[in-house]
Amino acid sequence: MGILEHWLGYNAKRQRLYNKAPTGALKDFLAVPFPQPSTPFAQVPILAVDFETTGLNAVDDKLLSVGYVALQNRQIQLAQSYHQVINTGQKLKTDNVLIHRITDNLQAQGHPLEVVVEQLLKALTGKVMLVHFARIERHFLQQACLELYGLAPIFPIIDTLALAKKRLDMQDVAYDPSELRLANLRKKYQLPNHLAHNALNDAIATAELLLAQISYIPTENLQLKTLLC
């Protein structure tokens, strides 16, 4: 481990946050080191995560459902998949329901935010988070932790959107931003259509996209740090 990384790397930040965190789920999560940036890709434990939310603002809007699936050794493990609706205690907006298809009824049967976040943190422990468009998941999860534990943690994240964007930017050709949508990127890699806006389906779809993306990168020396956003 380099001296810089020792002070500035995400594991160093994790350690500092760990010292501040209250005893409980968040502290447990922060107790375990994340994989080192130099870890070969195949050995990195990854958790593909997706949220459905009531809107795009992490402060005003609520987390509505969480889905995740584990990815390691280039294999998506459906045995380690999870999907849970959260009861926000608020009435849902119709136009929103049309997108994620979670109705008030379904929501009423959901679990409290705390239970779901705890489950997610447990699954994420020692892993790298994989999402498509990191902003939403990072902000909503940090916001949820802030509310629940009074502290916003750190997550090393691989973002399939950022990877695609980097590729397109390097090509120096103008592109339509809609090309970066999950469904459109999947189409580009001939991946099948998927039922979008279900948190678990989107998490699996994101994991599949990552496998397709990295299959186009010479992988012998592919290290985690090349992929982190």
């Binding site: 280039r74 294999q75 998506i76 493990q77 459906l78 045995a79 998949s81 699996i204 994991a207 599949e208 496998l211 397709a212 299959s215 186009y216």
Partner: peptide, 14 residues
């Protein structure tokens, strides 16, 4: 069955 599935991606010619 589906809960026991692993998904992988195989590049052409691999």
């Amino acid at each position: 069955l589906s809960q026991k599935i692993t998904i992988s991606y195989l590049r052409q010619d691999k």
